[in-house]
Deep mutational scan, measured.
Amino acid sequence: RSRTTFTAEQLEELEKAFERTHYPDIYTREELAQRTKLTEARVQVWFSNRRARWRK
């Protein structure tokens, strides 16, 4: 699998969701996946990476 490139629109959606919760449940992730046209797995990994960046 090659590296996922996120569009500005996708990042906006993901960042907005991250402001609400750092640990979205499966329903939230599924909804985000549909809205951003990404897979739920990509959304999950993005949140994991985003939390790592947030901790630094």
Score class of each variant (00 low, 15 high):
R42C: 15
Q34C: 07
K56H: 10
H22R: 09
T5H: 06
A41W: 09
Q10F: 02
R50H: 04
E31W: 09
N49S: 09
S48V: 07
D25K: 02
E40K: 05
F18V: 01
T39D: 12
S48P: 04
T36A: 07
T36D: 01
F18D: 01
A41L: 06
F18N: 01
F18L: 01
T28A: 15
R29P: 01
R51T: 01
E9T: 08
E19V: 08
F47Q: 00
E19A: 14
D25A: 04
E19R: 09
T39H: 04
A41M: 09
A41G: 12
E30V: 06
E40V: 10
R50I: 00
R29H: 00
D25S: 05
K37V: 03
T21W: 13
A8F: 09
W46M: 01
Q10A: 06
D25M: 02
L14W: 00
R50W: 01
E9Q: 08
A41S: 13
W54S: 13
L11P: 02
A17R: 01
E31H: 08
A52F: 05
T5A: 10
K56G: 15
R3I: 13
K37Q: 13
A52H: 04
R53S: 14
R51P: 02
E30Y: 13
Y23V: 06
T39M: 05
R20Y: 08
F6Y: 06
L32Y: 03
E13L: 06
F18G: 01
E15W: 01
A17S: 13
S2T: 11
V45T: 14
Y27E: 13
A41P: 06
T36K: 02
K37C: 08
R35M: 09
Q44I: 06
F47K: 05
Y27F: 11
R1S: 15
Q44W: 05
A41R: 06
F47C: 00
T28I: 07
R20A: 12
E30M: 15
E13Y: 08
E15I: 03
Y23E: 08
N49D: 12
I26P: 10
S48M: 15
D25Q: 01
T36P: 03
T28F: 12
W54T: 10
W54K: 09
E40S: 07
T39N: 05
R29I: 15
D25L: 00
E40D: 08
W46F: 02
R55L: 11
S2Y: 08
T28M: 13
R55G: 08
T7C: 04
E9C: 08
K37A: 11
F47L: 02
Y27A: 15
E40R: 05
E31L: 11
I26Y: 08
P24K: 03
Q44M: 14
W54V: 11
T5Q: 07
H22S: 05
L38R: 02
T21L: 05
T7I: 03
L11G: 03
R3P: 09
T21P: 01
R50L: 00
T39L: 04
R20V: 13
H22T: 03
E19G: 08
R53K: 10
R42V: 15
F6W: 06
F47M: 10
E30D: 12
K16Y: 06
F18E: 01
F47A: 02
R42F: 15
A8H: 03
E13D: 04
R29W: 05
Q44S: 15
R53N: 08
E30I: 12
T7G: 02
Q10P: 01
W46G: 00
T5D: 15
V43T: 01
R42P: 00
W54Y: 13
L11T: 11
R51A: 02
H22G: 02
Q34N: 09
R55M: 10
L14D: 00
Q34K: 14
Q34S: 13
S48W: 05
Q44Y: 15
R55E: 07
R29M: 13
R3Q: 11
T39V: 05
T36R: 01
T21Y: 03
Q10C: 04
K37D: 06
Y27V: 13
L32S: 00
T28W: 05
W54F: 14
R29G: 00
E9W: 10
H22I: 05
D25C: 05
N49T: 09
T7W: 01
E9P: 11
V43Y: 07
R51K: 00
R1C: 10
P24D: 02
P24M: 01
R20C: 14
D25N: 07
E40F: 07
R55W: 09
E15S: 04
Y23C: 02
L14T: 00
S2I: 11
F47S: 02
L32A: 01
A33G: 03
H22P: 12
E30A: 12
P24V: 02
T4M: 15
F6I: 07
E40N: 06
F6A: 05
W54E: 15
L14A: 02
E15R: 05
T5C: 11
L11N: 06
L32N: 00
A33V: 08
A8V: 07
E9L: 07
L32T: 03
E40M: 15
K37N: 13
R42L: 12
A8Y: 08
Q10G: 05
Q10Y: 02
A8D: 15
I26N: 07
L11K: 06
T4Y: 07
T36H: 05
Q34M: 09
E13R: 02
T7A: 05
E9H: 13
Q34P: 00
L11Y: 06
A17P: 02
Q34D: 05
K37S: 13
R53E: 15
L38F: 04
R20N: 11
T28V: 13
Q34R: 11
V45A: 15
E12N: 13
K56T: 14
Q44A: 15
N49A: 09
P24N: 00
L32Q: 03
R29V: 14
R55H: 07
Q44P: 00
W46D: 00
P24C: 04
V43P: 00
E15D: 02
R55C: 12
R3L: 09
E13I: 15
R50K: 07
L32I: 07
A8K: 10
R51Y: 02
E40I: 11
K37P: 01
E12D: 13
R35S: 07
V45D: 12
P24F: 01
D25H: 02
T4R: 08
H22V: 05
A17V: 14
V43R: 02
E12I: 12
D25F: 03
A8S: 12
R3A: 14
V45F: 07
V43K: 00
W54M: 13
V43Q: 04
Q34F: 09
A17F: 06
A17K: 00
V45M: 09
E12F: 11
R35C: 08
Q44N: 15
A52G: 05
L14F: 02
R53L: 14
L14I: 01
A17T: 14
E13G: 03
R29F: 08
A41Q: 11
T7P: 03
F6L: 14
T39F: 06
I26G: 09
A52V: 13
F6S: 03
A17I: 15
L32C: 01
R42K: 15
A41V: 10
E40W: 04
R35T: 10
Y27M: 09
R29A: 08
Q34Y: 10
A41C: 04
R1E: 06
R51N: 01
S2C: 03
S48D: 10
L38W: 03
W54P: 10
S2H: 07
L38M: 13
V43C: 03
L11V: 09
R20T: 14
T21S: 12
N49R: 06
T28Y: 12
R50Y: 03
E15Y: 00
R20H: 08
T39P: 09
E15G: 02
R50M: 10
R20I: 09
E19D: 08
E12Y: 08
N49H: 06
K16N: 12
E31D: 06
L14R: 03
F47E: 09
A8C: 05
V43D: 00
E12R: 13
R51D: 03
T5K: 11
